[in-house]
Design a protein around this nucleic acid. Structure first.
Lengths: 109, 109
DNA sequence: GGCGTCCATGCCTTGACAGTTATATACGTT
DNA sequence: AACGTATATAACTGTCAAGGCATGGACGCC
């Protein structure tokens, strides 16, 4: 998972995934969509491949890429403890809205 | 969300969040848990604060930090289209296991 | 077989960021 | 008031990675 987060930190790579989650595409299409140079796209695709986030099929000279979502499950699992906090937080917000009569809150930044 | 992914790309910061999701902690505790220098921890905490992922309460000289999970919801939402793919992928795997009789697959890397 | 297309890779430069050391700031204690 | 504690911040350095350019390699087509 270490790698997955680092890979997703790059906006261009998230945009590539967002483009590929719609449908599989060749490199040229991604170059047009992202408006980046072809080598840059290919480099990002290599990173995504190494992370297992995409896979490529060969069609003559073209490489057709598509999403491989499995590594994202780790991130989904990592989020689990924090999802519980969302619920708590909402509850706390509700209490806050119910009380809402004084500054019995501590100073939170 | 751009910022959130970049912030989470750093392993030390994810470890800080994992420590804080259990319970709120002072900076000194985090220094011990992560085995990093105090300035390094404080710097990470600043990044996390700026991203809205933690908040600090003042207790004398101490700053007690706790998690603020809200920004993580954006990531959770970003994952949505890919979760649908997990289901598809599982279905595809099932079909694969059912068929399992020949190499009618294309060459996927 | 030569040429154009499509993509990957190597090299280079530049910018960003993590970590350390040193210092500043705020607070409590005696 | 002096000192120790707890945290933030500044300055510096090393590292790493993104993006551009140039090149290489595979394939189809004429």
């Amino acid at each position: 998972m270490v790698a997955t987060f680092e890979v997703l930190a790059e906006e261009s790579r998230r945009r590539i995934l967002d483009a590929l989650v719609e449908e599989e595409r060749g490199v040229g299409e991604l170059v047009e969509i992202l408006a980046l140079s072809q080598p840059s796209i290919s480099k990002h695709l290599k990173v995504l491949r190494d992370a297992g986030l995409v896979e490529a099929r060969i069609d003559a000279q073209r490489r057709i890429y598509r999403v491989r979502p499995d590594p994202l499950r780790e991130i989904d699992e990592w989020l689990a403890p924090y999802r519980r906090r969302w619920a708590e937080h909402l509850n706390a917000l509700e209490r806050h809205l119910e009380i809402m009569d004084g500054n019995e809150e501590e100073a939170w930044t």
